[in-house]
Amino acid sequence: MSAIKIPVYRPSLRGNEKKYVNECLDTTWISSRGRFVGEFESQFARTIGIEHAASVCNGTVAIHLALLALGIGEGDEVIVPTLTYIASANAIAYTGATPVFVDSCRDSWQIDPEDVRRHITPRTRAIMPVHLYGQACDMDALMAIAREHRLFVVEDCAEAFGTLYKGRHVGTFGDISTFSFFGNKTITTGEGGMVVTNDKTLATRARHYKGQGLADHREYWHDVVGYNYRMTNIAAAIGLAQLENAADVISRKRRLAERYRQALAGLPVALHAEQPDTVHSYWMVSILVETPEHRDPLRAHLSQDGIETRPLFFPVHTMPMYAKSYRRHPVAEDLAWRGINLPSWPDMSDEDVQTVAASIRRYFSK
């Protein structure tokens, strides 16, 4: 393996991140109190157009907190796509509920509403759409199913900050939604997440649980088993600075996807396509090769050229802890075995893109 010359991701830190972090250090407000926590929450809510936002320490606990706020627990089922990052399923399992896996749509790679409908049982309490790699799910169809069966909708927007569905930000359709700000996300706090909702009761419940279940009316009195899921002021300071440049970052990522599309034209690969009535934020620019036999050799070839890539997520239903009632999800499996995430950081140069494309071209010309 050659030394990495083009990493799969690198955050863009060209704004007020250092200034705001230094303010935290200078004022000694470095933990979960300080001005940046509230400002980041309120500015994030305004940016996506939602009433309430509660910051947390990472995206996985954001999902857990959202499920806790809804009262999801033992004996419940939550429908989730099998083609997702493991955190979506694990957070369901943390509550004692059962993740029920469904297949993907071939054109969008997102959760298949018709397969959702097929998997609803009397124990189903919620549907968890995951806006995978920055492309929006079919929220009209999913919300209609949820209304018909009186189910909650928990949107996992970990990879989809800036993604739009029919002109609205994802995360504003469900009962409650979550975002991740890990170091490789479109906006980052290093580690961090957000729970958002238009429901004041759910917002209050989420804040209560994330702060160790501390009661409002009595100092150091705890009335539920809570969690220490709070975001630090330092992380929020970075997040606020990131929000200030978010529109530019998303614009650059979308331009990056278009440059890849042009550079890869004529090669036997298919770029993850933006669907009608959506704006794809292209957290990761991803391709499919024609057959699974090409995927790993192509990644090895790129690695030899110093280009880092990732495979698409393994379908969660194939992993040992979730395979007890194994069944096939053929579209998700096919996408997973053929998919590659290409280097996708917003500051990539045209030269970097051409280097990646040239390496792929050399592979297929052998």
Rank of each mutant, 00 (worst) to 15 (best):
S104F: 04
I307C: 12
A3L: 15
A270I: 03
G193A: 05
V269T: 12
V289K: 08
T186C: 06
Y220P: 00
A215C: 12
A93Q: 14
W221D: 12
H272V: 02
E219C: 04
N90F: 09
L256F: 01
S177H: 05
V196M: 15
L70Q: 03
F364T: 07
D107Y: 02
T355C: 10
R35S: 06
E74C: 04
T172F: 12
R205Y: 13
C137D: 10
F152N: 04
R362I: 01
H329N: 14
F161G: 01
K366A: 12
G174R: 02
W109Q: 00
R327T: 15
F173I: 01
H169R: 04
Y220T: 04
T186H: 09
S303V: 07
I340Y: 07
N16E: 14
Y20S: 00
M143T: 11
I307W: 09
V316N: 11
L243D: 05
R230F: 00
I250V: 15
G226M: 05
G339M: 06
V316H: 03
G183C: 03
E39Q: 14
L68G: 00
W283R: 06
D140R: 14
R106C: 01
F40E: 03
A265F: 08
A62F: 07
I176G: 01
Y9A: 08
R338V: 10
S325V: 01
F40H: 04
Y165R: 14
N198Q: 13
H294F: 04
A158K: 08
T278C: 15
A146E: 09
T98A: 02
A144G: 04
Y9R: 11
V289N: 06
V331A: 13
P311D: 14
H301M: 09
K5F: 12
T291Q: 15
F364S: 07
Y227H: 15
A206N: 05
G96K: 13
R254F: 00
A141M: 10
H52L: 05
W221L: 11
R362T: 14
E155T: 04
C57Y: 06
W109V: 00
S359H: 15
P7L: 10
Q275N: 05
I250L: 07
G49K: 10
T27V: 04
V21K: 12
S108L: 08
E148A: 10
N90Q: 10
P346W: 02
F314H: 08
V61Y: 03
Q304M: 11
S359Q: 11
P292H: 08
